[in-house]
Simulated scan of single mutants.
Amino acid sequence: MGESRFERYDRYERSLVDVLNLLNLAAPLAPSGDERNDPQARRSWQCTVAWMIMRETVPPQPEELFEPLMLAAVYEPDPSHTQRLIRPALAAFGRRRVQTRLLEYLRTGTDYEIIGAADAWYCTYQRVTGSDTENDPCTDLRHAFQATGLRIFLANDHPGVRSRISTLLNLRADDNPPELRPLVSEVLSIVRPA
């Protein structure tokens, strides 16, 4: 994917610390020395910080929190933990803003960022009390995701990108607008070769 796991961990950890600083929370002691090379020690620290963020982030939040929180969500290495960062982003900034930013990551990101943005996109459909996520279904953004996802799948042959994107696409031709049906057919020919 171009970056080593530890390079991605470094980037993820920097974004977590940025979020903690903006929330005026003290970071727990991070792994140092030999522990920096131990994936389990680093993941334990990352998960602890992500839980702190999820518990503390309630609206309203400063504007400066948005980008570090989104970066942390995209760089979260475990898709099952992404919701810990997306939930507070949805509560503080709303589904429309979060999904719009994720679409930008999908369109311009590295392979790793595309995969992370797809994981985060999946989490944006959860209900979050006290935010506009309940009121705005963002149907236009769902359509934009479908079109973007189909194009990414066809243009990017990275197996991780294709695998993650394909699970989020609606590949029923009749459910897609006429202009996307040829793309759906192309994707299906790759997913289900003859």
Rank of each mutant, 00 (worst) to 15 (best):
M1W: 11
S4C: 06
R5D: 10
E7A: 13
E7I: 07
R8G: 09
R11Y: 01
L16A: 02
D18A: 15
V19D: 00
L20N: 05
N21D: 14
L25S: 05
A27C: 07
A30H: 02
A30D: 02
G33S: 08
D34M: 12
R36D: 11
A41Y: 06
A41W: 06
S44I: 04
W45T: 04
W51F: 09
M52W: 04
M54L: 10
T57D: 03
V58I: 11
V58P: 00
P59Y: 01
P59K: 09
P60T: 06
Q61N: 04
E63K: 12
L65E: 07
L69Y: 01
M70K: 01
L71T: 13
A72W: 00
Y75M: 11
Y75W: 08
Y75E: 14
D78Q: 08
S80Y: 08
T82D: 00
Q83A: 12
Q83N: 10
R84L: 15
I86V: 15
R87W: 05
P88E: 04
A92K: 01
R95D: 12
R97T: 12
Q99R: 15
R101K: 13
L102Y: 06
L103G: 08
E104T: 15
Y105N: 06
L106H: 07
T108F: 12
T108D: 14
G109R: 05
T110R: 10
D111T: 08
E113I: 06
I114P: 00
I115D: 00
A117S: 13
A117E: 06
A120Q: 05
A120S: 12
W121M: 02
Y122D: 07
C123Q: 11
C123M: 12
T124Q: 06
T124R: 03
R127N: 11
R127P: 05
G130F: 03
S131G: 09
E134P: 01
E134N: 14
N135W: 11
P137I: 07
P137V: 09
C138Y: 05
T139K: 08
D140N: 12
R142D: 15
A144M: 10
F145Y: 10
A147C: 04
F153W: 07
L154E: 01
D157E: 15
P159A: 08
G160D: 12
G160E: 09
V161W: 02
T167N: 10
T167P: 00
L168F: 02
L169G: 00
L171Q: 01
R172A: 13
D174F: 11
P177F: 04
E179M: 04
E179I: 03
E179A: 11
P182F: 02
L183I: 06
V184M: 02
L188K: 15
S189K: 14
V191G: 04
R192S: 14
P193L: 05
P193T: 02
P193K: 04
A194C: 09
